[in-house]
Amino acid sequence: MSKRSENYLRLIKIAIDTNNLKKFSGSSVLVTGGTGLIGTSIVDIFIYLNEKLNKNIDIFVASRNYEHLVKRFGDVCEKEYFHFVKYDATKKINFNFQVDYIIQGASNANPNLYIKKPVETLMGNIFGLNNILDYALRQKTKRVVYISSSEVYGNKPEGRNKLINEEDFGLVDKLNPRFSYTNGKRAAENLCIDYAYEYGIESVIIRPGHIYSSNISKGDNRAATDFLRCAYEDRTIEMYSSGNQLRSYCHAIDCASAIIFSLINGKNCQAYNVSNKDSVVTIRQFAKEVARIGQVNLICGKVNDSNGMEYSALDSSKLENLGWHAVVNLREGIKEAIADLN
């Protein structure tokens, strides 16, 4: 196994058992964005299935840098079933191997870079997915799962008080480079459907909520990540907003299990929210829980609520009705994230 804590592996086992992921065996899968927040947990689950349950899965992990892969997964990178694939979502691909399934998770997910590199952000989603779908068509891949985002829903009208389902959509400023990520995800989702209807490529779309875990990268500057890092480093958490916005927090292991579950059980051309219904809290409540578990102080600075989505709380009942369930509650998830932070 890769170098992960016993608690992290325990959560993986619970997710596998609860969502019947053991039936995923004897297949091959390509995971792009394999060293990202979600991609890492996806690969970890596949590794666990091989190492602990002998499921004989060929794992192809696409990443820009092999050294990053080794740093993250250690000696597992030398296993016969583990294959490094050099990959850049903004460039053409020429893969010479065939896989049964593809999970397209490669995407810039750093809000700071949305404005600094809006072209790369937009094209990484559209052009990157287009290349993957062309590859899937040539190689007769069984199914592609595209990891989208809750940001596709845009901003909701004031006073909204119900969870967002897959048919809801709000407003997005098309002339603001900040929304290169949002518009790229929206266009990529439509591209999945287009390939399915025109060429018969099976695809499923996953829309995660606010994902967190110990796999956060150093460049990740989202609020939840900053709270966790402060707790890990024994620093005071400082908030610069009211924190009243409601969010769907979901541990990366739960998100990863939902994605793998959808490879087998998701319906073609459907989108599914991924959220833990027991972890729908405000930003302030999340920060308070991080401060309590991490035993650090929480203070509020000058309030600035002018940026970000007003409301982002997802309803995951559509996926739950297929049999998937989140297993990591908020307290347990935050505890893992702080203790095992990379």
Rank of each mutant, 00 (worst) to 15 (best):
A313T: 08
N110L: 06
K3S: 07
G36S: 03
S275R: 11
K267Q: 14
S180I: 04
S242Y: 04
Q295W: 10
S279V: 06
I334G: 06
N130L: 12
S262K: 04
S306V: 11
P111I: 08
N276W: 11
K174N: 10
G219M: 01
K23N: 10
S248E: 15
Y8A: 14
Y153N: 08
N244F: 11
I164P: 08
G74Y: 01
N304D: 12
G159I: 03
K116E: 15
S148M: 01
V281G: 04
L341Q: 02
S316G: 08
A271W: 05
Y240D: 09
P111N: 04
N130R: 12
E320K: 05
T236F: 10
H68D: 08
H251W: 04
E158W: 03
E151W: 09
R292I: 04
D168P: 05
S306D: 12
K3C: 10
Y197Q: 13
V31T: 09
N329T: 11
M309H: 14
D173I: 04
N244Q: 07
C250M: 08
S27K: 09
E202Q: 13
R64K: 12
A291R: 02
C77K: 06
Y114D: 00
N297E: 03
R4W: 11
A109W: 00
N268A: 01
N276S: 13
K86F: 09
T121C: 01
N221F: 12
Y87T: 08
V327S: 02
V280C: 02
E238R: 14
N131W: 05
R207D: 09
T90V: 13
N161W: 00
V303F: 04
G33Y: 01
L191C: 10
I42Q: 10
N50R: 00
L49S: 01
S317R: 06
K79P: 01
S316C: 13
G323I: 04
V145Q: 14
N215D: 02
R207G: 06
K3P: 08
L246I: 10
N110K: 10
A196C: 13
H251E: 07
A313H: 00
K3E: 14
S306N: 13
F127I: 02
Y114A: 03
S279K: 08
G323D: 07
A106I: 05
F227T: 13
R186W: 11
I115H: 06
R10F: 15
H251Y: 09
G128E: 00
I253S: 05
Q139G: 15
D226S: 10
K117N: 07
L228A: 06
A313N: 09
I211C: 15
N65D: 05
S41I: 04
K267W: 15
F73G: 01
A256I: 03
F286W: 08
K71M: 02
K156N: 08
V303E: 11
L298T: 01
R229E: 06
I334Q: 10
